[in-house]
């Protein structure tokens, strides 16, 4: 049962990978990456059930955290070309954008 769901999840991830590589814009890719990460979290959980190793839930939880922070970091980097202190004047289009 969980194995079948994992297969469906893998198929969905494959479709998401197509969008990830096809683009066309950076934002499509980030969107696909984020959705891919969400599915990865679920897949880790399901694999934990398939192999009967409940410790996988910790990894899934951690991956959920990293996925969120990673998405924000990628977007922040491409918006400001920096990850540390943001110079507000350097922001394209939106002066005083929240950092």
């Amino acid at each position: 049962m969980f194995f079948a769901a994992s297969l469906a999840l893998l198929a969905a991830m494959l479709l998401m990978l197509v969008r990830l590589f096809a683009g066309p814009s950076l934002y499509d890719r980030v969107l696909a990456l984020n959705a891919f990460g969400t599915k990865t979290v679920l897949l880790i959980g399901l694999v934990g059930f398939v192999t009967d190793r409940p410790d996988f839930m910790d990894i899934a939880l951690l991956y959920a955290l990293i996925n969120f922070v990673g998405t924000i970091a990628v977007l922040k980097f491409f918006r400001y070309r920096a990850l540390g202190d943001i110079d507000d004047d350097a922001a394209p289009g939106k002066p005083g954008a929240p950092s």
Partner: peptide, 24 residues
Amino acid sequence: AIGFFMFFTSPTSTHAVANAAWAA
């Protein structure tokens, strides 16, 4: 906990992507 976390972060990251695209 995973469910709650997704409930809170998924709109935030969706909005972040949308807002980044809009600002660009």
